[in-house]
Amino acid sequence: MPIIETENLSKVYPVAVKEPGLQGTLLHFLRRTYRSIEAVKQVSFQIQPGEVVGFLGANGAGKTTTLKMLTGLIHPSAGRVRVAEHIPFRRKAAFLQQITLVMGQKQQVIWDLPALDSLKIHAARSGIPDKASGERVGELTEMLSLHGKLNQPVRKLSLGERMKAELMAALLHHPKVLFLDEPTLGLDVNAQVGVREFLREYNKRYGATILLTSHYMADITALCQRVLVIHQGQLIYDGGLDQLLDNFAPYREVQLELAHPMSEAELSLYGEIEAVEGQSVRLCVQREALTRSVAKILAELEVLDLTVTDPPIEEVIGRVFSAGGVS
C-alpha cells in the first residue's frame, strides 16, 4: 500500500497584477485585479514505503507547492492526497508525528539559542521522554558529526552545521516520511556529501520514505532510484533515474585546464566541443565512453586540471519536456 498517494492534485493561486507606472499604481490601489496562477495541475503519483524519490523541476515548476500540499501546509484546490493514511490538511497529531518537512535553514531551530534548547522543545512537543530524547540526540549527533556544536547559539554555526542542526530537529521524532526541499542548497561539497550520507543512512536504518527536491544532480544520483519531473505544474516524467539519464542526459561534461592552447581539430578527438577559451575547454562525453575518454585525455594531453560534472538539471528537464515526457 502506497504511503504517499495523489490523484489529480491541483493548486490555483490568485495573484494581484499591477501595471508599471503611476497610472498602474493608482489603478492597483483603487481597483485591484487578480489573475489565477495554476501552480500545480492534476498531478498523480504513488510512492511506496521506504522509497527515496527525487522531485525535479526548474524554479517555479510547482515542486514546493506540491510539497506543501503533501505536508498539509496548504489546502489543495482540487484532487485527492493521502500521506501515511491521513488527509494532510487536517494536520492531526497522529499525522504530524509521522512526517517532517525540511525547508531552508531558519525553520526548526531558534536562531539565538543553542540547538539543544530547540531540541528540548521538539522533544517535549512530540512527547518524547527525556531519556529517549537524550539517546536520539546522541545517535543523531553521531550520524551527523555534530559533536560539540549543539551548545553554542545556532547563529554562530557554519551554514553546513546549521543545516545539520535543522535536520536533527526535524528528525528527532523519528518521522516515517521525510519531505526535503533543497536540503543541500548553499552547502560546500563536503557538507553536501555529509548530508547525503546521513540521509542514505537514515533511510536504511529506519526504512523511511524520502521525497526530495534538489538543484544538484549529484544529490539525486546519490540518493534516488526514482524521479518525478514537474514542468509548469504538470508531471512530465515518473520513472527510474537511470532511464531518465540514459534517455535525456546520456553525456557528462568534462572541463579541462590545459597547459598549452590546442586547436579545435585536435580537441575534437576526445569529445564533442562545447566551448574553448584559451586553455579552458569544455567537452561533452558520452556516459559509456567517459572512463575511456578521461584516461585518454590524461595520457595524451598535458592537463593542469580536470573536472567531470553532470549536465545541469534544467537542461535535462528541458530535454524531457521537448521530448513530450515519458509517464
Binding site: G72, L73, L96, I99, L101, K106, Q107, R125
Partner: peptide
C-alpha cells in the same frame, strides 16, 4: 513563511 514549520508540529 516561517509559520509553515510551526504548523507541522503537534502544538
Amino acid at each position: 513563511g516561517r509559520l509553515s514549520p510551526r504548523l507541522l508540529q503537534p502544538l
